[in-house]
């Protein structure tokens, strides 16, 4: 494999194993999703704890 194609191969590998730069999805949407899901998880756990403690009736 010559030098140029080796460099191309490395670039392809890097693109696959690293996040794309300036990506709206990875820069904005992913953090919002992670925080949002964290909040929902805490809310669901509090609800389940409420059931356990008898605060929420079922």
């Amino acid at each position: 494999m010559n030098k140029v194609s080796q460099q191309d191969h490395r670039n392809v590998q890097r693109q696959k194993s690293h996040m794309p730069q300036n990506s709206m999805f990875f820069e904005k949407i992913v953090p919002v999703l992670l925080v949002g899901m964290g909040i929902i998880t805490v809310a669901l756990i509090l609800f389940a704890a409420g059931v356990l403690l008898g605060i929420v009736h079922f």
Binding site: S17, H18, M19, P20, F26, V30, P31, L34, M37, G38, T41, L44, I45, A48, A49, V51, L52
Partner: peptide, 30 residues
């Protein structure tokens, strides 16, 4: 059921969010 579901939610969702965050922070393996 709440015991198992609290544990499952905390570990499964918490673990997935934590793993996603680690890779996201290091900017690797999208």
């Amino acid at each position: 059921t709440p015991f198992f579901n609290i544990y499952g939610l905390l570990t499964l969702v918490g673990g997935a969010i934590w793993s996603a965050y680690l890779f996201w922070r290091k900017r690797v393996l999208p």
